[in-house]
Amino acid sequence: MKPSTGDRIVSVIIHILLIIIGFVSIYPFWNAAVISFNNGIDALKGGITFWPREFTLDNYKFVFKDKRLINGFIISVLRTGLGTAGAILCTSIFAYGMSKKELIGRKFYMGMAVFTMYFSGGLIPSYLLIRDLGLVNTFWVMVIPGLISVWNMIVFRTFFKSLPPGLEESAKIDGCTNWGVFFRIVFPLSGPVMATIALFTAVYHWNDWFAPGLYINNPDLLPIQTKLQQIMNSNIMTEQLKQMDSAAAAHLSSLRSVTTKSLTMATMMVATFPILLVYPFLQKYFVKGVMIGSIKE
């Protein structure tokens, strides 16, 4: 059947709207990237939109010379790596146990877990708990509170339940224990769901600036996002200069083309790059993951 004229007009409008949405989605990022590659003093004159006017790598040179930012970057990498690996391991083991029909007390455990999705103690009691546990000002405050996620447990459990039961049975006949079955058979089969949850967890860890800002005073332990937030909050060049080591300060004065804004933009690009590198390739997985999660709502 040929599309009617009305349908064709609608189709054209839809395509135009989608192009606008696509453009608006990417423009702020593009613009920031362009400014980060532009001479900072020149950028202050404004008017930079799609292309750099005076191309330079100085901003990036400066960022990569600033030990505090590099340190923040390393903390972010460590935190994301450990936090994600730990969360995947703990949550998937929990979910595997919960997927067993014969588990005694399963309903009770499930009720206890699901209740926390609807009701929580809130910010202040949690804050005091973290304090009482002695996690304040430690690296682990960024890892431990995220180890178990009820939501992810449900996603994992749904996936484990969908695996053919024959697999486990045959492994058990061969003498595998439940833990053995989990690590040798179920875990390797869970690639897609692991990839999804790993992506979401990693993105959470990488982007979280609030918890470190709340619990950590030691600047050497702050991840890049919190550093970025503090830089933007202070937004005073002199303060940055004061805190910088003298070599970097000397370097800055020799560059003369770097401003707080261009520097912030370059730091932002560095802080976003790892995510940008990963998410487009995991798309088909997380689309599936979101579906499993929403079915099980």
């Binding site: 083991i93 919960m98 014969e102 103690g121 224990t177 439940n178 833990w179």
Partner: peptide
């Protein structure tokens, strides 16, 4: 079934500490 209980109970203790103690803290 100690082995599958062992998969679940640590997580439940964790949830108790990180979610239920703050609720008590209310």
């Amino acid at each position: 079934q100690w082995d599958i209980q062992l998969m679940v109970i640590p997580a439940i203790i964790y949830i108790f500490i990180f979610c239920y103690i703050p609720m008590y803290g209310l």
